[in-house]
Amino acid sequence: MRVNFTVNGRPQEADDVWEGESLLYVLRERLGLPGSKNACEQGECGSCTVRLDGVPVCSCLVAAGQAEGREVVTVEGLADHARQRSRGGSRGVPLDEAKAWQAGGPGSRTGEEAELSTVQQAFIDAGAVQCGFCTPGLLVAADEMLEHNPDPSDADIREALSGNLCRCTGYEKIMDAVRLAAARQSGEV
């Protein structure tokens, strides 16, 4: 089957999709967006977390066909998503940005060029990244939490991120990173 949906503000079309394929598989293997991770593929670890029409979901549990006509934000689009939000949350991509995307295609930016969102930079600065396999899902989940809860308590952070497993860090530096991102977003630091 063919699936049409929007990924990180850009219309995407995936052909020859087998009906049993997950949204995660289509993102990773058909659209060249492997940032969403495949740690368990059974909805337990959160490493594949994406926003589906704004709602964080485990993309391994979403059949690709369910994404038809909907908007998906992955870790690859997190920085742009944050930029748009800071402009007032208007939907759609300004023409110059869309052209920039087309020039390189999704996932073609190198690390040095990338402009990071607050939460992405905070994860680096706080030492919240070790192997990094949980990081994309945690970033999407943490960014979503900070969107509606800009001043979370520690218990709020733990509750919001309880669906995302990390095996390396013991979560302490992830807590630090989210606290740091919240403080930076509110201009406290």
Partner: peptide
């Protein structure tokens, strides 16, 4: 010094190529 990881940016942007990302 607590210098930051050289692979940090790639890992937070989803562009770090793990073994399961090879294509």
């Amino acid at each position: 010094e607590s210098t930051l990881r050289p692979d940090g940016t790639l890992k937070v942007t989803g562009e770090f190529a793990y073994s399961s990302d090879m294509w």
